[in-house]
Amino acid sequence: MIKLVNVSKTYKNGTEALKNINLEIYEGEFVAILGLSGAGKSTLLRTINQIIPVSSGNIFFKNVDHNTYKMYGDNPDKTIENLNSKGIDVKKEDLNLVDVDITKLKGRKMRIMRSHIGMIFQSFNIIKRMSVIQNVLSGRVAYNPTWRTILGIFPEKDKQIAYRALKKVDILEKTYSRANELSGGQMQRVAIARSLAQQANILLADEPVASLDPITTFEVMEYIKKVNVEDGITTIANLHHVDLALKYATRIVGVRDGKIVYDIEVNSKKGTDIIDDLEKVYGRPIGNQDYVGEE
């Protein structure tokens, strides 16, 4: 679905955050990226939607329709079949499926491409002075003309998408609350709903639970997993905690010093063995601070 080829990123101050990264991510995967702070996890995630531009290298998205920049994933026939079963009329012969390199896109094309990639953050980054529904509707900006989004008038169809997204994360009753009245866990659920409203094919989660307490952590992780499984949204999450990665991810990628040093399918090896391997990624023993703990 996504293929990073020789991706490097050097910041203006000379920090080499990413060094020649090669990584392929497949449709429907839940990839946990683990590594110490400063290893380059956040930069890696942000290059995928080009919020941070790469210094060199390419990031390809497979089977993107060249007209609409919609993603049809690793198996376009199945995707089209799914869409048809939902009553969305798509024919393969109308599509012009190509591999698109997001690092080469500019302006409107870049924005359309980005709109298919959701992103959630450690600090939630929802707009605190707006209502929950406005926040979720902001996920529809790229689908509407600018005058509409500036005035904040969204069509009924988009409102329905937003309500459904809020229902999915069980927060429909907060629709008209102001976002700053919510708890941390609720804010992150609104952020997930915003990504759902985007109808994103990919979800990038940058330390999504790092500022939440243990109970809320599992709650939010469950919603991310639900979105990943039920909606087939390919998920890439930077995580701090080893046990969360083992519990929710299908694949673990270890990053150290800007390089990928570890890459494994979670169910291909015993959990305890993976933890042993991760000591090499972290360069230190895995201790209590690397676990959220019991649910």
Binding site: N49, I112, S138, T146, T149
Partner: peptide, 29 residues
């Protein structure tokens, strides 16, 4: 302002006007 909100709105595929409307104006109004 908190630049994280700008980042988030940018990641939705918003253009400059929309970033202004959703990420900056609510913060400075």
């Amino acid at each position: 302002i908190d630049y994280g909100q700008v980042e988030a709105i940018k990641s939705l595929g918003a253009n400059k006007f929309e970033i202004l409307r959703y990420a900056i104006v609510p913060q400075i109004l």
